[in-house]
Amino acid sequence: MHMRNVKVTLIALSLVSGSVSAQGKTLREGDRFMCSWGAGTAARAQELKLSGVSLYAARQKIQTYKFNKSWMRMMAMGITEQTYNSSSRLKPPAVRQSFYEECVRYKLARK
């Protein structure tokens, strides 16, 4: 994923997570969950992209998923679209790790 795509996604994630306490540099459990969930979503999108699944088909697949939180469906759509728009050919585990690290870095920098 390109850095600007990651940053756009992280900004959206931060809007969803609401205000964060400015005390300390530890990651809240909710932020950790959000980063982990987003990283998994990006990795799944990259896997679909690399296997030749169209963005349209990937979007259709997301529509069939059951999500626990109201923000997850739209966030999954955004992460998937950004993943498809990226020219990256990284393997899904590398995308997962990169997304997670950038998300954590972003969340900690906001504190």
Results as ranks from 00 to 15, higher is better:
residue 1 M to S: 08
residue 6 V to P: 03
residue 6 V to L: 15
residue 6 V to M: 14
residue 7 K to Y: 15
residue 8 V to P: 01
residue 9 T to I: 11
residue 16 V to N: 12
residue 20 V to Q: 13
residue 20 V to N: 12
residue 22 A to Q: 11
residue 23 Q to T: 08
residue 23 Q to G: 09
residue 24 G to I: 01
residue 24 G to F: 03
residue 25 K to T: 03
residue 25 K to C: 04
residue 29 E to M: 04
residue 33 F to V: 12
residue 37 W to P: 11
residue 37 W to S: 15
residue 38 G to K: 06
residue 39 A to T: 07
residue 40 G to P: 14
residue 41 T to Y: 03
residue 41 T to S: 13
residue 42 A to H: 05
residue 43 A to E: 04
residue 43 A to P: 02
residue 47 E to S: 05
residue 47 E to F: 01
residue 49 K to G: 05
residue 52 G to L: 03
residue 52 G to S: 02
residue 56 Y to M: 12
residue 56 Y to A: 12
residue 56 Y to S: 14
residue 59 R to G: 06
residue 61 K to S: 10
residue 64 T to A: 01
residue 64 T to W: 01
residue 69 K to Y: 15
residue 69 K to V: 04
residue 71 W to M: 04
residue 71 W to S: 11
residue 72 M to K: 14
residue 73 R to D: 13
residue 73 R to S: 13
residue 77 M to N: 13
residue 78 G to D: 13
residue 78 G to F: 03
residue 83 T to E: 14
residue 86 S to L: 12
residue 87 S to Y: 09
residue 89 R to Y: 08
residue 89 R to D: 10
residue 95 V to A: 07
residue 97 Q to P: 00
residue 100 Y to R: 06
residue 101 E to S: 04
residue 101 E to Y: 00
residue 102 E to R: 02
residue 102 E to G: 03
residue 103 C to F: 07
residue 104 V to A: 02
residue 108 L to M: 11
residue 108 L to A: 05
